[in-house]
């Protein structure tokens, strides 16, 4: 349970941090994702005993995937809250797909893509059906 909460938190942090690197610090999406992922992966490569073997193996992977969520354009997700929601959805997918397409390259990216599609889809639906007007009244 604690491991799952930690992984979800890292996913949200990874996505938001990548977004900040990419947009505010103007590094671009690819460099922002790759730099953060490289830093985390190298840390656990050189210090594997800092945490349990489960976390040492999964933290770089979940961060790597969440950095793809952070690569999203501001047109799709204009604010950090939406990025955080997508990262949360991504982490749920990650934790539930440990045996699906294992060892296939691009699996993490596909999970991130589905998470963003989910958040974006509901964002459009809420705008189109103007659901928020009932809350404003």
């Amino acid at each position: 349970m604690m491991n799952s909460i930690l992984l979800v938190s890292i996913a949200i942090f990874g996505a938001v941090f990548t977004s900040i690197l990419s947009i505010e610090l103007k590094q671009g999406a690819v460099r922002a994702s790759a730099l953060g992922s490289l830093g985390v992966a190298l840390y656990f490569h050189f210090f594997p005993l800092v945490s349990s073997s489960y976390l040492t193996q999964n933290i770089p992977l979940i961060y790597f995937g969440s950095s793809f969520v952070g690569m999203v354009s501001p047109i799709i997700h204009p604010n950090r809250a939406q990025i955080a929601i997508s990262a949360f959805i991504y982490s749920i997918i990650y934790l539930n797909t440990e045996g699906v397409f294992m060892k296939y390259g691009g699996r993490l990216g596909a999970s991130a893509f589905i998470a963003i599609s989910f958040t974006y889809g509901f964002q459009i639906a809420l705008k189109r059906f103007k659901l928020f007007q009932y809350f404003k009244k």
């Binding site: 296939y104 691009g106 990216g109 596909a110 999970s111």
Partner: peptide
């Protein structure tokens, strides 16, 4: 959309 490159690769 983030993750599109990964989806294409998969």
């Amino acid at each position: 959309f983030g993750g599109k490159l990964g989806a294409v690769a998969l």
